[in-house]
Simulated scan of single mutants.
Amino acid sequence: MKIIFPKFDKWGMPLVGLAAAVYFIMEARKPLRPRTRPKPERLLINGSVAAAALPALRLLLVPGMYAAGRWAEKQNFGLLAWLRLPTWLRYAIGFLLLDYTNYLWHVLLHKSDVLWRFHQVHHSDLDLDLSTAWRFHIGENIASVPYRGAAIALMGAPSSLVLFYEVIFEACTAFHHANWQLPYPVERRLNQVLVTPRMHGIHHSIVAQETNSNFSVIFSWWDRLHQSLRLNVPQQKVVIGVPAYRDPKEQTPKKLFWLPFTAIRPWQLPDGTVPERDEKTKYSSTHLCP
Rank of each mutant, 00 (worst) to 15 (best):
K7V: 13
K10I: 00
W11E: 11
V16P: 11
A19S: 15
A20G: 14
F24Q: 05
I25R: 03
M26V: 12
P31C: 04
P31I: 09
L32A: 08
L43G: 14
I45A: 06
S48L: 14
S48T: 14
P55S: 12
A67T: 13
G69Q: 10
A72K: 15
E73N: 10
K74V: 04
G78R: 14
L83S: 08
W88H: 10
Y100L: 15
T101P: 06
T101G: 02
H106Y: 13
V107Y: 12
L108F: 13
H110L: 03
W116Q: 06
Q120H: 10
Q120N: 05
H123A: 05
D125S: 12
L128K: 04
W134T: 11
F136W: 07
I138W: 15
I142N: 04
I142S: 04
I142V: 15
V145Q: 13
V145K: 08
P146H: 11
L154M: 08
P158C: 07
S160I: 02
V162W: 11
V162G: 12
L163M: 08
L163P: 10
F169Y: 15
F169I: 04
E170C: 02
A171I: 10
T173G: 15
T173V: 13
F175S: 05
P185N: 09
R189V: 12
V195E: 05
P197T: 07
R198P: 02
H200V: 05
H204R: 14
I206A: 01
V207E: 06
Q209F: 08
T211K: 06
S213V: 07
I218R: 12
I218C: 08
D223C: 13
H226N: 13
L229E: 12
V233S: 03
K237T: 06
V238M: 00
G241E: 03
D247G: 13
E250W: 02
P260H: 12
A263Y: 11
I264T: 09
P266D: 14
D271W: 05
D271M: 09
D278R: 13
D278H: 10
E279K: 14
E279M: 11
T281D: 11
K282R: 15
K282D: 07
Y283A: 09
S285V: 13
H287K: 15
